[in-house]
Amino acid sequence: MAEELLRVEHLKKSYQSKEVLHDINFAIHKGEVVALLGSSGSGKSTLIRTLNGLEDYQGGTITFAGETVHPSKATWLALRQRIGMVFQSYDLFPNLSVLDNILLGPLKVQHRSRAEAEEDARKLLASVNLADYADRYPRQLSGGQKQRIAIVRALALHPEMMLFDEVTASLDPEMVRGVLDIMTDLAKRDMTMIVVTHEMNFAREVADRVLFLSDGEILEDRQTAEFFAHPATKRAQEFLASMEF
């Protein structure tokens, strides 16, 4: 098996006095695609946001590429170049062109040369079939196009791992396919990915493993095929029965 990239141990998170993540433990290896499933309110978004330093946590450790993460601002600033994240709200920056959106990270965070970063950005744009959109502004794009560019914007930093937080949830149905195709493609090219999604067919096809969350706990951590064929817990059975796919 490939090298371990991320390890989460005894992770706890509370809002005020209410604990929303209890004792989360799992590990992810390089090239693995993990689907984080669960009904709304199960804590899956909170968990994935914690992995990018957008939420603080009250206990436990996160280890990334062999190093324990000290939960400080500086640590996360550095780590975010290595852990890309895409959100449900396809938030391109409306004041910047598509190209400038993509170049913001490479130029300002990684201080790469403009010529090199731009060539890279254009290649990435071409790979999602949006090569002609470099000079457009976000307002001129559809939701699906914006989300594809948001993915490119995260990839432009050449992260070692990608986090996807319900990235198709706000898209019109006809836009979903294009975004999922990009993610499938990334998975095939051995990108390490954690995906929060409600697209069960996508999870079944693309994910190697499923983490099933309920009430802030991981109830199942299984191979994808096994999870879908024989969910072990009642919660997971009910969850799968409630989804249409």
Binding site: L77, R80, F87, D91, L92, L104, V109
Partner: peptide, 19 residues
């Protein structure tokens, strides 16, 4: 969500403000 998108790219507070 705009601010989080910026943070997720690794922008510092100052860069987040500026861009």
């Amino acid at each position: 969500s705009q601010i989080e998108s910026g943070r997720a790219l690794g922008l510092t507070d100052l860069q987040l403000a500026r861009y």
